[in-house]
Simulated scan of single mutants.
Amino acid sequence: MPELRAGGRQWTVASAANLLDALNDAGFSVPYSCRAGSCHTCLVRCVVGEPLDELPQALDADKRDQGWRLACQCRVVDDLAVEIFDPACDGLPATVSDCHWLSASVLRLRLEPERPLRYRAGQHLVLWTASGVARPYSLASLPGEDGFLEFHIDCQRPGAFADVARTLKAGDPLRLGELRGGALQYDRDWQDRPLLLLAAGTGLGPLWGVLREALRQDHQGPINVLHVARDSSEHYLAEPMNQLEHAHTNLKTELVAAADFHAALAHLRIASRQTIALVCGSPASVEAFSRRLFIAGLPRGQMLADVFLEKT
């Protein structure tokens, strides 16, 4: 059976054991969220040996060349030595610049990184608390214009990161981990095509950044935004979206309460088969949006979707 080494310890594990499970069973508390290779919170660096990586495409080539692997996607088949991602050494320091409740359950968190971070609208970033809790969140800020990194945190239910986020105040330290591409983006080649932005809950966050990127690049086609929330009080960007709608004649927004979601879906249409749809929210909402778009005739390759998994 293979030997696994980490943190100055060495022990035997079952052949083909999941690397994340093997480390956590040994008491290392490697954080994770999705176990699907999406969140990137379980990064480890392989320093001796190579695991069987079941999802090598999940990491950029430069990360892989540095030895980084996603523990949840790796199996220990030979002797292996790893270093666990240490936010104190490997993470980028950041400071909380502002915490503001946009609704009863949505917290807007703004961070100032120690050095500028290059990113594009719609990407994800792993946030680490001082206590070692790590969770991926989508950026809602607009690169090159907003002087901060903005995140919309759903604090309706208890959760390891949400519980800490409720207590944050200006000046508190955080660490930034892996910056991820994410499925959502704006492409200049879409400039004359209809855009359909569909969001549920804080799935509006990354689409808020993508929407402003499209408008900044003077998007010429029609843009329709639909936001589904638990009730009218949770349409947390209603006022800024209304202001954008008044400033841009090609932008239309629709706010839908959860009770009216299926009725709104039944009336959902696409402007043309050239429409590009960007969808973000819970698995159930993304599935409902996707099914309706397919029925409406949207080609599958013209829908980009990000699914927000429940964060514990």
Rank of each mutant, 00 (worst) to 15 (best):
G221Y: 11
L179M: 13
L117R: 04
R269S: 15
P56S: 08
Q243C: 12
S97D: 10
L23H: 01
K63Q: 13
R118N: 12
Q302R: 14
R230C: 03
P206M: 11
D231T: 13
R230I: 05
A104Y: 07
V126A: 07
L304G: 04
W128M: 00
S282Q: 09
R35S: 10
A284C: 03
V106D: 02
N242C: 10
S105F: 02
L268T: 15
F85V: 01
P143R: 11
L70I: 12
G181P: 00
L168K: 05
T167N: 13
E234D: 15
P143E: 09
Q185H: 15
E145A: 14
A264T: 15
M241S: 00
G203Q: 10
V47S: 15
R291W: 03
D86H: 07
A247V: 04
F294N: 09
A258G: 11
C39E: 07
P158T: 10
F28M: 07
L197K: 05
S290I: 01
W128D: 08
A71T: 14
L207W: 07
S282F: 07
E239M: 12
S131Q: 15
R292H: 08
N24T: 09
E114T: 00
S33Q: 14
G7N: 12
G159S: 08
Y119T: 01
Q123M: 08
R157I: 00
R5Y: 01
F308S: 01
L52S: 14
P158K: 09
E112W: 02
L309R: 13
S15Q: 13
R230D: 06
L55T: 05
D306W: 06
G8C: 08
A257Y: 00
A81T: 15
L197M: 15
F289W: 13
S38H: 12
T202C: 15
A134D: 04
P93T: 06
S97T: 10
Q220H: 13
S282H: 07
F289T: 02
G181W: 00
G67L: 12
E145H: 13
E287L: 11
V76Y: 03
T129W: 01
P113Y: 05
L268W: 12
A140V: 05
I153F: 02
L207I: 13
L207F: 11
L55F: 09
G182T: 02
A88D: 12
M241F: 15
V126N: 00
P299V: 07
A257R: 14
G205Q: 08
L19D: 02
R135C: 10
E245C: 14
F161L: 15
G177V: 03
G209L: 08
G67W: 07
R110E: 11
R291E: 11
A58P: 07
L293D: 03
G209C: 09
G132W: 11
Y32R: 04
F308G: 01
V225K: 00
R291F: 01
S38P: 00
L251S: 03
G144W: 08
L142D: 11
L20G: 01
V77E: 15
G144N: 12
M303F: 02
R120I: 02
L168N: 04
A263W: 09
